[in-house]
Design a protein around this nucleic acid. Structure first.
Lengths: 338, 338
DNA sequence: TTGTAGGCGTTATCAA
DNA sequence: TTGATAACGCCTACAA
């Protein structure tokens, strides 16, 4: 069935245009080095043959691919979508292409996909968070692959990062919650193992809790994967206790959305019976009812800056590298003053 | 700054293992053709050097990449996320990799990305919907690139598609709406130009409307991009009329979510003052309040089947190709009997 | 401004 | 079971 059709190559174009392959290559890559006449001739041949350069051959010969790889933990919920979109737009403006894969929050899978993207000739990489096996960083360093870490920030680290301080942000939100009179908190955290954002957010809550003179033993914490349904199930667990929490703080808007929905289904009123908070300020946060009080993250800005940083790194230019962005608390109806 | 590190190649491995490059290649690709002793020797060399095969070189020499390209209209909302996830999982099981790009609903961009993926050596392509320039299909045919169209279905077409009948589904939902007593409908459609799913869904509503003896002139329709905020804005327009609609049917859950939220903010009660329907049954549909009556699409199943079809095509096997999936109406609180 | 020719890192076809 | 060696399609000194 697969009749192998003839795919035009540089040679074909060269023959049709009656020039050398070198000239054709120049017409495609450095027009200024070619006379207007030959350029026209060659482009016509390209057109008539429907020629498209073979990317693999080009990357191999030129030793660069103008391709950036990004590995995000998940595509399923919208956490990374908006930032990634902006990242891609910025890359495209500079004629870089983006390759995306998702690691399903599995470090081994991520490591494998890093090798895959590098093997594909990626000129640089965008990774989420900073916590990963040292061997991975070694590998990247040995191959000389410029890498930017996003969605987190470690100013003291030897890595380039464009993100925000998850811990400080969550601490700030918790301070606010406690100031509003809440004393019975419960936490639904993301799985902290292998996820520095989740770990830092939880730590931020604990920082604030202790700073206010409370004891960690009095702070119920459960860890759940970032899915609405696990938030919903976690809610049921958390309210089956003698002293119900007055507020449930979630490591993420997705968990919080699950909590709010399930609470309503079970006849709880949010925020009158119980308050809920999230983190990220994704689209969902505005559309659940009541809308979520959450930490607003400048996703698009982060994506843009990450792209600029990475390109600077790749092209060996001066300019910004690591950058820590500001976030703010977005108050909405799901959190109530006691 | 970029010290060009030495990246180990097949040659390096061959030297260290004291065999030929051909043998090393065999160890990596067809172990059974190699003696156990050499295999061990070679793998050890691979390990010690930290060798990773160069993908571009491999693809060029082998004339196949085990890579599938997918181009979706957007990553921003979750419409395609779940299906794509399943698509990828199925591919991975068969040792195919997935490359994703997003066309932002722009046909020219899509055409360009198709060329890009083909140039990268994609063995096959997944595209959304069937409506695109004939030149694109010609190009694909000339290059002999197996392609599967998803999220839509054209059984009479010469293309392979794995999807569902958007028009029939929406007609069915509309029948239901009308049976429930609604006579004042208003429609917020997606932009139909260049989007067959949006066009078919709108047509489905019109089919039902006319079949019930009503006139198209009495059916207010506005087209808006698939974003919650445009749904929200559209809602305001639609209720600023003398005879308010009793139900607003949206081409998509995202639009419907925007409508529900804005309606509530403006003091309307959904569904008591006005009913709302969506399409797709994405996560969001369950979490807005009230939850959306919508058309449930078997996203994951569609993704799996599309992957199987595409692989069958690529590997020239017998087996299923086009397939039309069933959808059903998911009744939830946003639609009320009059 | 243009052409020649070597090389990029694999795989695959032959022989050995 | 192994080893030479010719592709694969393009880029890029270097020469002309």
């Amino acid at each position: 069935m697969h009749e192998t059709p003839h795919i035009p190559t540089l040679d074909d174009v060269a023959k049709v245009a009656a020039v050398s392959t070198a000239t054709v290559s120049r017409c495609l890559n450095e027009k200024q080095k070619v006379s207007a006449k030959t350029l026209a001739k060659v482009l016509e041949a390209v057109e008539s043959l429907g020629y498209t350069p073979n990317f693999n051959a080009r990357a191999m010969a030129a030793k660069q691919s103008r391709t950036i790889g990004a590995i995000i933990p998940t595509m399923e919920n919208a956490i990374f979508a908006r930032g990634l979109q902006a990242f891609q737009e910025t890359l495209l403006e500079q004629r870089y292409n983006l390759l995306v894969s998702s690691s399903a929050y599995q470090p081994k899978l991520e490591a494998q996909q890093i090798r895959e993207l590098v093997a594909r000739g990626a000129d640089g990489l965008l990774l989420i968070g900073y916590e990963r096996d040292e061997a991975v960083y070694d590998y990247l360093a040995r191959r000389g692959i410029p890498t930017v870490l996003a969605w987190a920030s470690k100013p003291d680290s030897r890595h380039v990062s464009v993100g925000f301080d998850n811990r400080a942000a969550m601490r700030q939100l918790t301070d606010r919650v406690i100031e509003m009179g809440h004393r019975q908190l419960a936490v639904i955290s993301g799985i902290v193992d292998g996820n520095d954002r989740a770990a830092e957010r939880l730590a931020g809550i604990q920082d604030s809790w202790q700073a206010h003179g409370f004891h960690l033993d009095d702070l119920p914490v459960i860890q759940r994967p970032y899915e609405t349904k696990s938030g919903a199930a976690a809610f049921e667990e958390l309210v089956q206790v003698d002293v119900k929490p007055t507020v449930i703080m979630c490591g993420n808007d997705v968990l919080a959305a699950g909590v709010v929905s399930r609470a309503r289904d079970l006849g709880f009123s949010v925020p009158d019976d119980i308050s809920v908070t999230g983190f990220d300020d994704i689209e969902l946060a505005k559309h659940v009812y009541p809308a979520l009080t959450t930490v607003h993250v400048p996703h698009r800005k982060m994506g843009r800056i990450a792209a600029d940083s990475l390109i600077n790194l790749i092209e060996d230019r001066e300019g910004e590298v690591s950058q820590q962005l500001d976030v703010f608390i977005q108050m909405r109806a799901s959190l109530k003053q006691l």
